[in-house]
Design a protein around this nucleic acid. Structure first.
Length: 1059
RNA sequence: GCGCGUGUAGCUCAGUUGGUUAGAGUGCUUGCUCGACACGCAAGAGGUCUCAGGUUCGAAUCCCGACACGCGCACCA
């Protein structure tokens, strides 16, 4: 095998090849693995751009788990995917378009074009994300790649929506919702970001003779007040309760203010009375509903509209004003009328939209909601209760279906969130997302509604738009219409008929015949366009429906045209067109009303008069669309978390009954940013327990956020953003991965900075270089430990440690303590194996043990730093080119012990180590150069066998030329001395010994030792300690005392001899 | 306001059920090319474990309080 060991490991040169090799092996795909299934669904990154460091951490965590499980013989699946991220992506693309100069993308582009723009952006982003995930070495199964907005996932969304609707859990309701004026959409309670800002609190009366003073920070909303609420126990206001006062504050109508009670009102805050504005405050709206339930209703007046402007209800003085202007004006009104009592500066928390950044307005609207409190049919449990149960006792109280959250404290956070949870508003007015699977149509004045997984079948599926006078229908004829119709997924043709000046019937007819018009077609024609359609029907051309708008049957200006049509035969027309509607616009400047009247009369169909069918205005008029009698899908889209909530099972092909679903659900492990516990984790639990009657995952690990060294979150605006790919390119993916998990503790933030990454990189190089040494020092790398072998002290020591560390690292990974695991492995690899065992190997040359331990180390490191370990494996240990480390067996403690087959491992190496360190210390103190010969004398009174056995090691590592061992202590002149366990050490330093320095050194040691001994003495002389502390502790301390005593004697002796 | 987390070496963090003289990485000092590694090796300095109280024979660890920082939640009109 070729050995490719460069001096430093170059990740840039090997990572891509290694990843390719893994991918081609097929082992990313669990279908090619055996064993028990183990699954993790990757939290799908938003297609709003590129991955950031947080994703790198998430990928590291998941990949450690999946590689570890794969090496443990599991059928391991890490399923990758991306999230269309509804509002986030649309907001992002709109921002880009605005920067490009498109002022109002929604209006200027329309639904279809804007969606195309977003789609294009999303696709780009997706492919970037995928390549980034590859770069990080994540071993996910690309053959199962999913996207929240693809066909399969959309099917799951619709299926769940319909099921919830059937169960009455999804309803359409008119309620106060959170409205972003800037985004022109609702948002859920969780999408609000509360920010603190200074505000003014105004205390005032509605009118001079109104008996109660109230306070508010939003005076302009007071134009919509319908009640004043006081605490039922408040003595001050008893006499007013139930009374209605009519006040005129300048709104359209005088306000009818009813005095009501509500225990939520705090007596001690402000005046203890609260002006109730049901339309513009969720709390006030709740009061409105409570009053309604009590059969003591209060009014609801909407004074702010969707654009953040005052409505007509607010009165002529306010209508059309912005909220801020109206506030100013209203406060002025109060001042002028001497109604304002107080004006105070306070700080206030306002909810802002987390995506659009503007202050959220509370507005009453009809929206779709998920009822979290209603009992699910057949369950006697609400969605809230399902969510609680899964984490508290297990789904259906089954402990095996219990979700464990690491760290545990997040369980409380989760429960308190559920306690405060209100019905979830799921409809959004943005376009990028799953359109709500509800269709409406107008049928004979009746609104029909259809809720289903797929669009109901249309009667007609094609539309042809015809205009007159050679105009381009897409420009002159209702410019919006083509777009609207196409948005309904219809095939639309809009041909321009020739010869504008003098329309020629024969010519038009031949053009008409080229069109693909049949019984599935609706023809919408205005003026001569419609006339032409009638004429062709008369000639025998059959089609589905004609909507004739302002249609002339004769025209003096172009007699030839009508002459060529000939005599109208209305019976024939009616036979060939299955449905006809006649519309006339009141302000069409060209076609007189009578024409349409005549047509409707002749055809015996009603004439519909519409406003503004003027082809020059482009104003929408719903009548034409309604006339098509098409199913129109609810234009709203679903909250993005609706689809994310289905992620653990929609990714497995549900609602199809797939094998994947059977094998891999519930998933074993899930991780996500701590910040989306509510958004996502909670929603997955809700959706999955409801839909599948099982939990989505067994263990969930919400991780903290990555920050820079100062603890700031990474962000573009702060300018501290680090691109994970830049890091991969500079330091390698392994270094990035290792940095992302060293120092994490569950749920806490983690600081990451270049020095840390460098340090991780240095470690991977270290691991590589150990391999490089072994590769050059050991002739046979396939050398296995022989059946019979004699272990030296060092062998025993390193194997004992290996067993210990294997046990601990395994346990740490099992409990998701990745940092602990890697830290232990790092210390073992560097401080024990490299610094000591490898050095000893240079003397003892026990290749088999060296290789064995190294192999285990490389295996254990693989989940953390897969590239360098795989490369080492390929260079050193792979038995053939298909042998990959990624599917080698993770060695657990049990197999390790049986492989070693040596029960008598023990640790006697510590003494040797200490001795060597002391020798080095003395050498260093006296600046003894390496090439200078130094000899030592050891007083080995207790005949420590290890010393004799390991003389060579002491010599080599301590750089000693000779060791003399004596049994009885004799004063060694011209030497430095120390005490190591039972041993006394003399380092002979004939020419360099400095009595003063040596005295200092010993005295310092002595001082420390005596201090320690005194502490021991105190403890041991305390009767309390001796009688109450456990025996083993007391004995240990006694033993320590004895040893310390001996050490002190030796040190004192030496000190005496020095003087 | 309520809740949670954190506070240990200059910096970033470990520290198991309380039990010797509190550890690692990094930085710092000193010395080094000894069979791989200067992205390295060796030796060393560096800590009132935020503060105050309590429980205990014994506290970085458990309890109570204070302070600082961070985060989450909240309807103070």
């Amino acid at each position: 095998m070729s050995k490719d060991f460069s001096k430093t490991y170059n990740p840039q040169e090997v990572e891509d090849d290694i990843y390719k090799k893994w991918e081609e092996s097929g082992y990313f795909n669990p279908d090619n693995l055996d064993g028990e299934p183990y699954s993790i669904m990757m939290p799908p990154p938003n297609v709003t751009g590129v991955l950031h460091l947080g994703h790198a951490m998430e990928n590291s965590i998941m990949d450690i788990m999946i590689r570890y499980q794969r090496m443990n013989g599991k059928k391991a699946l890490l399923l990758p995917g991306t999230d269309h991220a509804a509002v986030a992506t649309q907001a992002k693309v709109e921002k880009i378009l605005i920067e490009k100069g498109i002022k109002n993308p929604r209006e200027e582009l329309g639904r279809k074009k804007l969606l195309n723009e977003i789609r294009e952006y999303a696709e780009n982003s997706k492919s970037t994300i995928i390549s980034q995930i590859r770069k990080m070495g994540t071993s996910c199964d690309w053959s199962r790649l999913a996207y929240t907005f693809d066909e399969t996932r959309s099917q799951a969304v619709n299926t769940v929506f319909v099921k919830m609707h059937e169960d009455g859990l999804i309803y359409r309701g008119h309620r106060v919702i959170n409205w972003s004026v800037k985004g022109q959409s609702t948002c859920s309670d969780d999408e609000l970001e509360h920010i603190e800002r200074p505000a003014k609190l105004y205390t005032f009366k509605y009118s001079k003779d109104f008996p109660i003073t109230i306070a508010t920070t939003r005076p302009e909303t007071k134009l919509g007040d319908t009640a004043v609420a006081v605490n039922p126990d408040d003595k001050r206001y008893q006499e007013f309760i139930g009374k209605i006062y009519t006040v005129d504050v300048g709104a359209k109508n005088p306000l009818e203010i009813k005095i009501i009670t509500d225990s939520e009102v705090e007596k001690d805050f402000g005046t203890g009375a609260l002006g109730v504005t049901p339309a513009h405050s969720p709390i006030d709206f709740a009061m409105y509903e409570k009053q309604k339930a009590k059969n003591d209703p209060i009014g609801l007046i909407q004074v702010i509209d969707k654009d953040g402007k005052m409505t007509a209800e607010a009165g002529v003085n306010y209508q059309g004003l912005s909220v801020d202007k109206a506030r100013e004006k209203f406060v002025n009104y109060l001042k002028e009328n001497d109604l304002l009592e107080k004006e105070e500066e306070i700080t206030q928390n306002v909810g802002t939209s987390d995506r659009f950044g503007d202050v959220i307005e509370s507005i009453p609207m009809t929206q779709w909601f998920i009822d979290v409190n209603k009992k699910i049919p057949g369950k006697n449990k609400s969605l809230k209760e399902l969510m609680q149960e899964a984490v508290r006792t297990g789904h259906n109280n089954n402990p095996k279906q219990k979700i464990n959250i690491t760290p545990k404290r997040f369980e409380e956070t989760y429960f308190s969130w559920i306690d405060n949870l209100r019905d979830w508003c799921i409809s959004r007015q943005i376009w990028w997302g799953h359109q709500i699977p509800v269709w409406y149509r107008e049928n004979n004045g009746e609104k029909e509604i259809f809720v289903g997984e797929n669009k109901p079948k249309e009667k007609y599926n094609k539309v042809v738009l015809l205009h007159a006078w050679g105009s381009d229908p897409t420009e002159a004829f209702f410019p919006w219409l083509k777009k609207e119709l196409e948005d309904l997924n219809l095939h639309v043709e809009a041909p321009k008929l020739p010869n504008a000046e003098n329309p020629n019937y024969a010519e038009w007819l031949s053009e008409f015949k080229k069109l693909n018009i049949d019984e599935d077609t609706i023809v919408i024609g205005r003026s001569l366009g419609a006339t032409l359609a009638l004429a062709t029907a008369q000639e025998g051309h059959k089609f589905g429906k004609l909507i004739a708008v302002c249609t002339p049957l004769e025209n003096e200006a172009i007699p030839d045209f009508f002459n060529d049509i000939g005599e109208w035969k209305f019976d024939k027309i009616k036979n060939n067109i299955s449905e006809i509607e006649v519309l006339h616009s009141t302000d069409d400047p060209y076609i007189p009303n009578e024409m349409s009247e005549k047509l409707s009369e002749k055809l015996n169909v009603p004439l519909t008069i519409v406003k503004k069918a003027n082809h020059f205005t482009g104003d929408k008029h719903q009548e034409i669309l309604d006339s098509c009698k098409l199913w129109q899908q609810d234009p709203d889209t679903l909250d993005t978390w609706f689809s994310s909530g289905l992620w653990t099972f929609s990714t497995l092909g549900w609602p199809e009954k797939t094998k994947d679903f059977k094998d891999f659900h519930p998933t074993n492990f899930m991780t996500m940013g701590r910040d989306i516990i509510f958004f996502w984790m909670a929603r997955m639990i809700l959706m999955t327990t409801y839909t599948l009657d099982e939990i989505p995952f067994k263990d969930v690990y919400p991780h903290g956020m990555l920050t820079d060294k100062e603890g700031n979150k990474f962000s573009k605006s702060l300018g501290n953003a680090m691109d994970p790919i830049d890091i991969v390119e500079e330091y390698g993916a392994d270094a990035l991965r290792l940095s992302c998990i060293t120092g994490i503790s569950p749920g806490n933030d983690l600081k990451i900075y270049p020095k840390k990454i460098e340090s991780s990189r240095n470690f991977t190089t270290k691991l590589w270089n150990i391999g490089r040494y072994i590769n050059s020092a050991c002739p046979d790398l396939q050398n296995n430990i022989p059946k019979k072998y004699n272990l030296t002290t060092t062998d025993k020591w390193i194997l004992t440690k290996l067993i210990e560390i294997t046990k601990e690292a395994t346990a740490d990974i099992e409990k998701y303590d990745f940092s602990q695991a890697s830290e232990k492995l790092r210390n073992f690899t560097r401080n024990d194996f490299a610094d000591w065992y490898v050095e000893v190997h240079k003397i003892e040359k026990n290749d088999a043990i060296l290789i064995y331990v190294y192999k285990q180390i490389v295996k254990m490191w693989h989940p953390f730093i897969p590239f360098v370990t795989e490369k080492i494996w390929q260079e050193m240990f792979a038995t053939d080119k298909n042998n990959l480390l990624m599917v080698e067996k993770w060695t657990d403690n049990k197999t390790l012990k049986s492989e070693l087959d040596n029960p008598e491992l023990e640790n006697n190496f510590a003494l040797i180590q200490e001795l060597i360190v002391k020798i080095r210390n003395i050498r260093s103190t006296y600046n003894v150069a390496i090439n200078e010969n130094v000899t030592i004398t050891l007083v080995n009174s207790d005949e420590n066998e290890e010393i004799k056995e390991n003389k060579e090691i002491i010599k080599k590592l301590g750089n000693i030329s000779e060791i003399k061992i004596i049994e009885k202590d004799e004063i060694q002149k011209q030497s430095a001395s120390d005490v190591v366990g039972d041993l006394k050490l003399y380092v002979h330093l004939e020419n360099v010994i400095d009595i003063k320095k040596e005295k200092n050194r010993i005295e310092q040691d002595l001082r420390k030792t005596i201090g320690y001994q005194k502490g021991l003495e105190k403890r041991l002389s305390s009767e309390q300690f001796v009688s109450k502390a456990p025996e083993n502790v007391v004995n240990q301390e006694r033993d320590n005392f004895k040893k310390t005593q001996e050490k002190i004697i030796k040190l004192e002796e030496h000190l005496k001899n020095l003087s």
